[in-house]
Design a binder for these strands. Sequence first.
DNA 1: ACAAATACTAAACTTAGTTTGTAATAATAT
DNA 2: ATATTATTACAAACTAAGTTTAGTATTTGT
Lengths: 374, 374
Amino acid sequence: MNEIEKEQTVSANERMILDIVRRSKGLARSAIAGQTNLTQQSVHRIIDHLVKLEFLQLGEPIIQGRGQPSPHVSLNPEAFFSIGVSLNTDDMSVSLVNFCGETLLEENIPFAPVKRLETQAWLKALLERWCQQNPSIESRIVGVGFAMTGYFIKEKGHIRPPDPLFDWSGVDLQAELEALLGWPVILINNATTGAIGEAFHGAGLTYQTFGYLSFNFGFGGGIVIDGEPFFGAYGNAGEIGRIFTTEEAPQRPALSMLIKALARQGIDVPSVAKLKTQFDPTWPGVAEWVEQTTPYFLRAINALRGVIDPDAIVLGGEIPKSLAHMLLDSLERCGMTSSQDISVWPQMIVSELKGDSATLGAALQPLRQTFFRK
Amino acid sequence: MNEIEKEQTVSANERMILDIVRRSKGLARSAIAGQTNLTQQSVHRIIDHLVKLEFLQLGEPIIQGRGQPSPHVSLNPEAFFSIGVSLNTDDMSVSLVNFCGETLLEENIPFAPVKRLETQAWLKALLERWCQQNPSIESRIVGVGFAMTGYFIKEKGHIRPPDPLFDWSGVDLQAELEALLGWPVILINNATTGAIGEAFHGAGLTYQTFGYLSFNFGFGGGIVIDGEPFFGAYGNAGEIGRIFTTEEAPQRPALSMLIKALARQGIDVPSVAKLKTQFDPTWPGVAEWVEQTTPYFLRAINALRGVIDPDAIVLGGEIPKSLAHMLLDSLERCGMTSSQDISVWPQMIVSELKGDSATLGAALQPLRQTFFRK
DNA sequence: ACAAATACTAAACTTAGTTTGTAATAATAT
DNA sequence: ATATTATTACAAACTAAGTTTAGTATTTGT
């Protein structure tokens, strides 16, 4: 490199300023100091440093009122890159994001990712191809966020996925992937990465503390506290499926259950992904399913309210937007009754993010962790 | 004061060191640096400063091995004091703690605290008496932690208590109490203060992130994350009662429900306080109540597990210890079944704290907030 | 007695901020 | 047009809080 060597250590105040720039998607340099507890001069110097490191870039001065115009500050999208992987029962997707968190490349595995080594070989080959086709990125990749479905267990780096992914259990997956890929790997539950995507690009821009409910083949969730994803003791925080007993599980709002209900009505939806694209709220069975699952949905919400009392609850995962709104309407009709005081409710939000938020969040986590507010 | 004026602002590193000394209940000065990311020299200087401020005191040098003996460092118990109040439906208790968090004075109100102004007048008179009888403390009281039962609502400083305490709603209680008492007042839910007591003196010495279940007349709880009490958006975090519907509420593990069940068996227990002192696990009806309430208890635990995945869950409040153990045994017999993976369980702990942990925690919070690790 | 280990003390240095002061720029009032 | 004024940029001295370096003191083990 003939450029300035990129330090990957960023001080707390530098991170704070990077996060302010990120959240506002670029702003006048002079508008930053007011959002910090630093003086204008300190902010000036910090930004100067971050520009020298090529983390930030200065644009045209903006004339907004009196006084000397202040240059526009924005993230340098090329400063760093990060890779996200999301592994589901029947699918795996991989993406590359830039320093702004924008997805540049995305690809799905062409076979079911049930065999661990076969899947890893495909992943390795894909990333090598990406690096060859984009030679500038290789040295600037900060790490890999690897999201998968399943519960973390006591052994560090191990996960217990659902049955079809049995081959992925019993190994220190984090260590294995780091050895394979040569980058730092963060292993995360894929409901939490959905929440991370939301924290970076969605509800997180408005709310500091929120719960994320991930409607997929199963029903899970993630937690964001003060803008940071919360993992809990073993990384299973937000795995709200735990509140249902074995008998109750079939009635929880998992999309697999809706697909079954639709099948009983003669409507064949082959996968959760297809459900998202083809969903029609007037299909027979949909209204009934919503009605029937609402008490269990409410219970999940009340678990979030009772335990963390969030600012907001975001409905995400792979749920069709119109279905999410049906669930919220049904909740209203139920009167949102709980046994106790019901006066303070979190904001209920349907996720606005495009694409696979689990893969996105997985890719964002290495970036967040290294460069943005902690 | 002819002593050095006591600054109430403590830097982050000073707070860290105060917290290390507090947790270890005193230790050799040389044993501190290893628990920080600071050098021995920096720790030395910081402790020097804290000793000059009379927050810490040096004791006899301790000879443990080779090398120059290192003086014993401990909190100066007289450095500061704090007041805690816990208001329940039928009782109010007030306590004074010293800088070590030890309760020095404690008193219960001799009448039901239903009338707000009458109760406040009694409290004001009590604190004035305490200050007169202990003239040295007045100038060193950092604040008042005011814990009460009820839900916080959107209006700042307001709370919605259960019906008998109706008179306490509809006002900015925090502002009112600050005006009355002349000290900073922190208004907290009394299940959270129980968790704070546990964080300071109990499970918090071992576990960083835990859930606290408070068995009282009702059934509530509090959350501690990374050693800090977590309040949530409105201060209602941990209010686990929300997970039960109106129909389910009578079966939740609230001690009032046990008292009712005992009454049906002809055993008259006049109050929750009496239950704690008189409880006999062989009373008829107890085993049945435990059996019947266990699924609801399990659901509360699974809500905590699902949402925050804690290191530990502490059973506290006013539950008799033997009853808490019966609940845990019953949980074991149920197989702790949930619909999903059940391999990672938090440590289940019965609180070992003596006295009223809600009042204790209320008193501790102003101290914690000002002087100990954040 | 003496070397090794450990802790204390002190001074110089470093980092990352604040404070203070000045210059530049552009909107606004006259 | 010109002076005024608010806002921002830039620069140097200062400050707070740590680290680094180096020497000193005290005890243990041989």
